[in-house]
Simulated assay, not measured.
Amino acid sequence: MIVTIQLHGKPMRVELSAAAERALAQRTNPLFAEVQLIFGCMIAKRVWFRDEPVTNAVAVNSRLNVWFRPARYAKACSFDDIDNGAEASDYPVAGDRGRFVPDLLSIDYRGGKFVGDFTYSMDEFRAQQAFRDLPN
């Protein structure tokens, strides 16, 4: 399944694998996916999944909701801490948060759990299209 949603005024394509679609169909409650761009000593990205509702989440369908969060961690350079439950705080973004929203979110279901990744690959495509559309 491929669906395009709007997060902070920017389109984001959401691609669900067949396994993810089957796993979502078996759920009684919606799943919430947090797309997290992490700012620290380096930029990192994670997709976290939870059952608890989130106010600003956008529905992909009746079983999946997504939201985007620029974040930072107290030990931003410790991926072990980040991946093992450290609490994030919001990263203060000056201006439009939409400029950080990724173009593509991919969600799969492997080993009994949801996994996700996101990319900004469409930016390159848009730039190429804009260049081609320029008058000679």
Rank of each mutant, 00 (worst) to 15 (best):
D83L: 11
L64I: 03
A86E: 08
W67E: 15
K75W: 08
V66R: 01
A59V: 11
D83S: 11
Y91K: 03
V58L: 11
K75M: 10
S62L: 03
R63Y: 09
V60W: 06
A88P: 03
V58G: 10
G85V: 00
V93K: 06
D90I: 02
Y73Q: 07
S89H: 05
E87F: 10
W67S: 13
S78N: 15
S89C: 02
P70C: 03
R72T: 15
F100W: 09
G95F: 06
F79K: 13
A94W: 07
G85R: 02
R97N: 06
S89I: 09
A71H: 00
K75A: 15
W67R: 15
C77N: 08
P92C: 11
D81V: 02
A74S: 14
A86S: 12
S62P: 04
A94G: 10
F79E: 09
K75T: 11
N61W: 08
A76P: 06
R69P: 02
C77K: 13
N84A: 06
K75R: 14
D81R: 07
F79V: 11
R63D: 12
N84Q: 06
D80K: 14
V58F: 04
Y91V: 00
F68T: 07
V60L: 03
S78E: 07
G85E: 00
A76H: 07
A94R: 14
A59K: 13
G98P: 08
S78M: 10
C77Q: 11
V58I: 13
E87W: 05
P70S: 02
C77S: 11
